[in-house]
Simulated scan of single mutants.
Amino acid sequence: MHTASPPALGVAPARIDIGRAYQAQQKLTHDGAVVLTGCETSADALVAATAAVLGQRLRQVFPLRLRQSQDGKPVHLHADGFDVVVDVGGVQHRRRDPDEDYVVIQCVQTPSSGGDSFAADAYRFVDDCATADPELWEFLTQADVDLYGAWGGLRGLPATPRVGRHVEYTRTGRRIVRRTDGAAPLRRDPDIEHIQTMLDRFEKAVHDLEETLPRFQLTEGDILILDNYRCWHGREAHTGDRTVRILTLRSCDAR
């Protein structure tokens, strides 16, 4: 039995001018996503817009990433988060964190065609699983996995497995719903076959969900802010060159 994919799972972010930062903050809290318009296409504008919306809740900002793609393939629904610590002059610096709770995406260059974005409410997905697919719900809420085990050969990832569940809570009760292609069964887990079966089932359910979601476009300068604990995001394939800047961060509400 697989999860249903009702249209209610789709997130269509409101478009709000950067001059209305308080209203943008309210929509972000209510919907889990918002698109800021009227922004300059610069890295400084991205950081300033993020600070304007999150205000004093902003705690830790990770290095900006410029992502360029040519004739890009689809990017499936996912939540951001990565475990990367580097040594700079003998001092360890964290460049990515598994518990980043907001992701901010700035459109720098639109492709010739395609590349529309989509987002899903992961909270509703999990809640629906409780009745539509209880076995998947049990896996997501109770099974430990190696969150980045499938990427174990990548330089910079720590040797110690990052063990967690797809659904967890912060100490203040905020729910986290993870979705990554990097999840793998723990080494020598006695239930390894079942865990892999459920990972495959979860992936199929997410890919099926993508077909039902509304699409939206980001134009040059637009900034998409997502609650990374609540919303998954992705985009369609595109032709031509596409460039975005990505900022991930932790707020005072992060785990």
Results as ranks from 00 to 15, higher is better:
residue 118 F to Y: 15
residue 117 S to Y: 00
residue 142 Q to C: 12
residue 150 A to M: 03
residue 155 R to G: 00
residue 112 S to V: 13
residue 154 L to Q: 15
residue 97 D to P: 02
residue 119 A to T: 05
residue 141 T to H: 04
residue 128 D to G: 09
residue 105 I to A: 08
residue 139 F to W: 09
residue 136 L to I: 04
residue 89 G to V: 04
residue 101 D to S: 06
residue 80 D to I: 11
residue 118 F to E: 04
residue 151 W to E: 14
residue 129 C to D: 02
residue 99 D to A: 14
residue 152 G to D: 13
residue 110 T to C: 09
residue 112 S to P: 00
residue 112 S to C: 11
residue 116 D to T: 11
residue 92 Q to V: 06
residue 131 T to G: 03
residue 146 D to W: 06
residue 117 S to M: 01
residue 124 R to K: 10
residue 116 D to F: 10
residue 113 S to D: 14
residue 98 P to M: 07
residue 80 D to A: 10
residue 123 Y to R: 11
residue 104 V to F: 08
residue 117 S to G: 01
residue 107 C to G: 05
residue 141 T to D: 05
residue 101 D to Q: 05
residue 99 D to P: 00
residue 127 D to M: 08
residue 91 V to L: 14
residue 146 D to H: 07
residue 118 F to H: 10
residue 125 F to T: 05
residue 136 L to F: 03
residue 115 G to L: 09
residue 142 Q to T: 15
residue 102 Y to V: 14
residue 138 E to M: 09
residue 122 A to S: 13
residue 78 H to R: 04
residue 76 H to K: 13
residue 106 Q to A: 10
residue 143 A to P: 00
residue 84 V to C: 07
residue 146 D to S: 12
residue 135 E to T: 08
residue 98 P to W: 07
residue 149 G to A: 05
residue 87 D to V: 09
residue 84 V to P: 01
residue 145 V to P: 02
residue 111 P to G: 07
residue 141 T to P: 05
residue 120 A to R: 01
residue 151 W to T: 03
residue 118 F to Q: 04
residue 150 A to L: 06
residue 102 Y to T: 10
